[in-house]
């Protein structure tokens, strides 16, 4: 891990060193493919190859120089000399692999013992490269829905539809929907799936941890043309009075710094959401730390629900 700014050309040098062993194991690869593998343009790769062609061992005759051919657009290499082995992993690279492996292990350990032991074995090997017991001190421990994500990715790649079973939190209901998955996104450390939802004929965002199952859908429904009928969830505006737990309020209602300023002056902040049911439940869950000031309909809805809930407590517990 380097903290100082590397000098110009250092990234290039690192890439040149990594190109040689990669080419040795991928003889005949096209310049375009190579550029993609190294995340640079074909022009940069061509310039890299031109530079490499001048490099070699002291003496610098044809015997000592690295020999490359790439006129045809396909690259072959010989005489790689001392650069024939890939370089050791840098600390960040080892750390990336280690955390990726830990995430993987977390997900499969209960279902596939053989695979789990292979992963554990690799974790041991890579930990040594991270060194200094740092391996124990930077750790990913989040179970994520790997098999689910793989199924959704498969549908995206083949442009297939999915039938999902989804827990709608605002309504506390589990329902089936037919969706066309578009892309994954993340916000506030939560992972989401953006999709076109046939069931509601609109673009919808689904929280990954609430998708209970997903199957490739082989039905014959054709996606309706995206036109003016496509529904966008409407936003509702409301105003909150913050009495306590300001950070929780701030985070749960995804407030911005603008509302932070008005919070400091008046404790009153404007907010919006896509669902009044969701807003109602968020306010309930904050248990009196926040109150709806307007609209009146939402304000009385919170009061009614709190009173109905209290009624459930009027019977002695049994």
């Amino acid at each position: 891990m380097t903290s100082q700014k590397p000098s110009a050309g250092l990234d290039d040098a690192a890439r040149l060193l990594d190109l040689v062993p990669f080419l040795l194991s991928h003889q005949g690869i096209s310049i375009a493919e190579l550029a993609k593998k190294f995340f640079v343009t074909p022009e940069e790769i061509t310039s890299d190859l031109t530079t490499l062609w001048m490099c070699g061992l002291p003496g610098y005759t044809a015997y000592e120089l690295i020999d490359l051919s790439f006129d045809s657009g396909f690259v072959t290499i010989s005489n790689a000399q001392t650069l024939d082995r890939p370089r050791a992993l840098e600390r960040n690279e080892a750390l990336a692999l280690l955390l990726g492996l830990e995430t993987l292990l977390e997900e499969i350990s209960s279902t596939n013992a053989d695979l789990a032991s292979s992963i554990a074995h690799l974790i041991e090997k890579i930990s040594v490269k991270v060194g200094e017991s740092a391996a124990l001190r930077v750790k990913a421990g989040s179970p994520t829905a790997s098999a689910l994500r793989a199924k959704i990715s498969e549908a995206m790649d083949s442009r297939a539809f999915l039938r999902i079973s989804y827990h709608s939190s605002a309504h506390d209901e589990i329902g089936e929907r037919i969706i066309e998955p578009l892309e994954f996104s993340s916000l506030n450390e939560m992972e989401y799936l953006e999709a076109f939802c046939q069931s509601s004929n609109g673009f919808r965002t689904f929280r990954m941890d609430r998708i209970i199952s997903a199957q490739i859908h082989h039905g014959v429904e054709v996606a309706p043309k995206v036109d003016s009928n496509v529904s966008e969830p409407a936003t509702i505006a409301f105003s909150l009075r913050v009495l306590d737990r300001a950070r929780d309020v701030f985070e749960r209602f995804s407030l911005n710094s603008l509302s932070l300023a008005s919070l400091e002056s008046t404790r009153e902040i404007p907010a919006q959401s896509f669902s009044s049911e969701w807003t109602l439940r968020e306010v309930m869950s904050l248990g009196g730390a926040v109150a709806i000031s307007s609209p009146e309909s939402l304000r009385s809805a919170v009061r009614d629900r709190a009173q109905r809930t209290l009624a459930g407590y009027s019977n002695p517990s049994y």
């Binding site: 990594d18 062993p21 990669f22 593998k37 995340f39 890939p86 992993l89 990336a96 692999l97």
Partner: peptide, 16 residues
């Protein structure tokens, strides 16, 4: 660590 993961992968794939 996306970029580091990618460069690690290139090295691993270079093992042939």
């Amino acid at each position: 660590l996306g970029a580091s993961a990618q460069s690690a992968l290139v090295k691993l794939h270079s093992l042939g």
